[in-house]
């Protein structure tokens, strides 16, 4: 991102839009990537409940995958999955 001059930014340190951090890809931090065995997944959504990075994608009450752009690979989802359908693979 090109850094802006003082005349081009809102005053007072204000960030005038919500959720702009999504542009910052924390997925680059990852050394292990969560991979799900879709057949085993029971869509209990516990992984969604415990994800610190809002990186479990859910649609129509079903787990649909990971937001790899932001998932930091902490491994909590794999650790708490009751049916062990998520494993952590080395990047």
């Amino acid at each position: 991102m090109k850094k802006k001059g003082w005349k081009e930014i809102p005053i007072g340190g204000l960030i005038d839009k919500g959720g702009t951090a999504a542009e910052y890809k924390t997925g680059d931090w990852r050394t292990f990537r969560p991979v799900r065995d879709e057949k085993k997944c029971i869509h209990c959504l516990l992984c969604w409940m415990y994800c610190p990075d809002s990186s479990i994608l859910v649609k129509d009450k079903k787990m649909t995958g990971f937001d790899y752009e932001h998932c930091k690979g902490c491994g909590i989802c794999a650790s708490i999955c009751p049916v062990k359908c998520i494993k952590m693979d080395k990047e």
Binding site: K3, K4, G5, W6, I9, I11, G12, G13, L14, I15, D16, K17, G18, G19
Partner: peptide
């Protein structure tokens, strides 16, 4: 129209805000 007031403003932009 959610906004964020009072962010962490480090070497990249703090100076610009002071200039304003």
């Amino acid at each position: 129209r959610p906004v964020t007031y009072g962010p962490l403003d480090l070497q990249d932009y703090y100076f610009e805000h002071k200039r304003q």
